[in-house]
Every structure is written in C-alpha cells, then in structure tokens.
Write a protein that binds this DNA or RNA. Structure first.
Lengths: 112, 112
DNA sequence: TTATTATTTTACCTAAAGGTTAAATAATGC
DNA sequence: GCATTATTTAACCTTTAGGTAAAATAATAA
C-alpha cells in the first residue's frame, strides 16, 4: 500500500511544522539541529518530520562531517500546483461573483 | 486542537478518493450516492470523506427532498495555491538546470 | 582510545484516519 | 401510518501520525 506521490506531497504539506521547515529550507541548506531550533518539540520529532518530507521527495539530506545538511527538492510541488490549477478558474469565478455582489450592496447603501 | 485552515485543506487533498470527489464536483453538483458510485467503499466511508472536505470548506451540502446535493466551494484552494507559489521559481530553476544538463548530454552523444 | 557533538533508531504512548456493519434519521409516496 | 429511498450516526477495528525518552550510531577532536 504505497501511497501515490501526489497524496504523499499533500500529506507532507498538511502540517505547519513541515511547512515551516520547507520555508526555512527555501532560504538555503541547513542542519537538522538548526532546523529544529524554532520548534518546541524534541529532535527525534523533527527527524520524523524530515522523513515524511524525504519520502515525499521534498527534502534530501547530505553528509558533511557529523552534520546532515538538508536541502529543498521542490519538484513534487509542481505536480501539486498543477493539480490545484485545474480549479483556479472556478474559484476565480466565485470570487468575481462575490466581488460584484459586494459592489452591488455598496451601491444600494449609497443610494439610500 | 483545531487544525489551521491551510493544514485542513492540504490534509483533505492528501487522499485520492477525496481528490476524485472534488474532480467530479468540479463538473457540477451531485448527490452523495452518485459521488460514491465509482468507489469500492461503503457509503458511510464516502460520507466521512465528505465531512473532511466540508470541514476544510471545500464542499457544501444542500437539501433537495431526500437528497443532499454536494457542491464544490473551491475558495480554500486559493490559499493552498498561494502557499505553493512561493516555491515556483525554485522548482523552475531546478527544472531548467535539469533540462540544460540533458541538452548537454545529448550534444556530447551526437558529438561522438 | 575516549569524549563530544549531531543525528537517528527503538520502544513506547495516545489520538486520529480510514474503513466496516448495523441502526438511526429524513423526506417522500402510497 | 407504513414502506421506500437517501443519507448519516454509532460502535467498533486496525493502521498511521505525531509525540516522548532513552539508547544507538557516526564523525570529529583531544
């Protein structure tokens, strides 16, 4: 029961700690300890989050003395974005309708 | 422990059944039974998936006689896409590098 | 070799996810 | 009221998620 890549990507993104790790890595490679610093959880917990990100293909780890520098491998995000894009038109239409409704409301207000 | 909206959205998308439900709903409103038809799981299982989608704000349900027509409410997808967009440049750069590497490989092949 | 630093693995816990079947609810039609 | 159709809820089960503390590994430094 290997979960499909797209599900793995979305699942990896469904946690604020992991999204914060990705955001940090988008500014450049760094070590596990430094990645863990902002969080109140233990180091093993961060290691686990990193595993989830690695299984999703979003992070890879190297070796440099006793450090394991982590870096972002953002390719899987493309597939995720591609999937989401198919709905863009629909939500834009919705937001347009909402906007014009609000405009109409305002027009009525002013008219009174 | 209410999970944040973005996490709820990504978690909702991290399941192929739920993504298929959204894809179906993007073609128009329909009933729970019809939504469930393509899947091998029980109706209560589909109800549960719909609950996840509703909690994420991606689906809303109406009432029409004994049916509960479901429709897509895609707004939360915008926030998800917006979050992903911040990485677009990075993955595009990566893909560009990959592409030029492959081009170079091919050039060498031909040169031999 | 021994100590130190960085990281992971193991063993464990609790809660949530995703599924089941059987029973409950809702609305309609006779 | 009673049967039918659509859907949900309840009770349960098994697996996974996310966390912990303590022990194991890996590389360096003294």
């Amino acid at each position: 029961m290997p979960t499909d890549p797209l599900s793995a990507t979305f699942a990896a993104l469904a946690d604020p700690t992991r999204r914060a790790i990705l955001a940090r890595l988008s500014m450049g490679e760094t070590t596990v300890t430094e990645l863990a610093a902002p969080f109140e959880m233990s180091l093993p917990a961060v290691t686990k989050h990193l595993k989830v990100l690695q299984r999703a293909g979003l992070v890879s780890q190297g070796r440099q003395a006793q450090w394991r520098p982590c870096k972002l491998t953002p390719e899987p995000l493309r597939e995720a974005t591609d999937w989401l894009e198919q709905y863009r038109q629909q939500w834009e239409q919705r937001l347009d309708r909402l906007e014009s409704y609000l405009r109409e409301l305002q027009a009525r207000e002013s008219g009174q």
